[in-house]
Design a protein around this nucleic acid. Structure first.
Lengths: 292, 292
DNA sequence: AGTTTGTCTTTTATCTACAATAGACAGATT
DNA sequence: AATCTGTCTATTGTAGATAAAAGACAAACT
């Protein structure tokens, strides 16, 4: 196989969803826009839709013949891009599995285990190396530096610098900046989740990322914004395999966020800094607690 | 060709230098250690040395037969790794050539131009993307973000945060930390160069990198240290193709460094911060001046 | 006049293959 | 006993090939 057709499969599935809500499909460019793919892929999707008698297709006429059934969809395993699959396998190994710092990482072995070619694994490792968890010995293997206490401390040190700077920028954003509206929305979501915390505490993770990313973005600095990727991926995977006390932990963080949000909305740099520091401090403690 | 044998050629050249100073070569493992390559490569080198009658080789006996001549060396173009060649070509295009922000970057075209396969170019671009100068559109081309004024401002903003933090750490390093000795050496080199500035001002660039890296390293934070790569590469290439006023610029920076070094040696955080700020400010101004 | 479609070309993502390099192990040597 | 060499195996770095996806352009349509 040269290239996985996951883009096609994923877009096809999303097209089925669109298709279940109308009686006719729009033009090819419009559909491409809606699905985020090129016309080439749109046409492949339409061909397939025609083949399985979901639509009749003649030039501009794309009439829906029947509602899509579950069996029409491609299974989700087939719609994930290779890069996503590699990332998940790899993160599971190093965060969940007992991967010791100093361990060697073998491209070939990883590739075999995941069932892909070495090229993709290699490219993933190169991309991943910027997260500071692995390091390359040229002409030889990669070395796992491990998700250690030092790693967490170094990560949070930079995070704190960046977020304090971003928060300071945030309070001085002009009143009409879209960030304020987004902040309002995020605030409302916080209240919603807190009101039904027992059932919805799992939604925190995603909201957390959205909130902090918004703050970081107000720095208008690509290095600060890019760095947030590292934080996000670490927290994402780390908590995914580390669910002890999730409910309480999240409830507490939500409260802190609300205080932090209020401080930002006050436009007072001093207050913002204080609230930011308080939250970052407890976030760091929580992270460190969960590392042996 | 599957793999360039640049490691071999480069190590061979370095071996010739060793060889010109002794009458017999040490054991294979020792030689490997000295040249930083595996025994496999050492044996390839020895084989070749024997072939061109530089040495006689029988098991442990490796007797030098004659001094190496210039013609024994591999030409330097052949000893650079592919990655280095790609980096140089690419940086020339985007920093020296009139590359407009927003321009598309084509893997295939780049590969053809440099004369390599696409894989290597691709991997280079992935590695390079962490410098924030290019960005990938998935399933499509890369986009050049350009070496613009904003880029320089964002870069220096983070640099200043990191270096101030590192300088603050530096002054509190224990007296026996090797950094102090290294700092002394660097200071001496500054004085040497300043004493003969007209002839030696070109040496500043390398010394600058060495000095700032030393400061950043005292942060003991991998993210801060890694970030210095970006600064180093930008300054390295930028000044390489931008030599106006190099002499004066470097002389001024050397003076500032000396003040900065003295401040670090005073162990006084306040003084260090001041000197650091002063130098970073003028470094930023110099960088910005040279961007249209 | 502006879209839309049909067709064609180019580029990317990924696999496979192979030489260069690293690395392991047992027997030889000091 | 420790180190070195000969030999063999495994892994990395790079090229080349190919299907998937993007994108260009002119003719067809509203």
């Amino acid at each position: 196989m040269a290239k996985q057709n996951t883009v096609f499969k994923d877009a096809f599935n999303r097209c089925l969803t669109l298709l279940s809500e109308t009686s006719a499909l729009p033009s090819e460019p419009e559909l491409g826009q809606a699905l985020g793919v090129s016309r080439t892929t749109v046409r492949a999707i339409l061909s397939r839709c025609e083949e399985v008698k979901l639509i009749s297709w003649d030039k501009r006429q794309k009439i829906v013949l029947r509602r899509p059934e579950p069996s029409d969809y491609f299974p989700t395993e087939e719609t994930d891009s290779l890069a996503e699959r590699i990332e998940r396998s790899f993160m599971r190994r190093i965060l969940a599995g007992g991967a010791e710092p100093g361990m060697q990482i073998n491209e070939l072995e990883l590739a075999r285990e995941i069932g892909t070619g070495t090229t993709s694994v290699r490219e993933f490792l190169i991309r991943f190396s910027r997260f500071g968890l692995i390091e390359k010995r040229p002409n030889s293997h990669w070395v796992l530096k491990g998700f250690t206490r030092e790693f967490a401390l170094e990560l949070t040190e930079v995070r704190e610098m960046f977020e304090l700077r971003s928060a300071a920028r945030f309070v001085s954003l002009p009143e009409n900046d879209p960030a304020w509206a987004e902040l309002k929305q995020i605030e409302a979501l916080h209240r919603d989740i807190l009101a039904d915390i027992d059932n919805r505490y799992r939604e925190f993770s995603e909201l957390d990322e959205r909130f902090h990313l918004l703050v970081h973005k107000s720095s208008s600095n690509r290095f600060i914004v890019d760095f947030y990727d590292i934080i996000a991926i670490v927290f994402h995977y780390h908590y995914q395999w580390n669910k002890s006390n999730a409910r309480e932990r999240n409830a507490r963080a939500l409260e802190e966020h609300l205080a932090y949000i209020a401080a930002l909305q006050s436009h007072d740099p001093k207050q913002a800094e204080q609230a930011c520091r308080r939250h970052l401090k407890s976030a760091r403690e929580t992270l460190l607690q969960s590392i042996p």
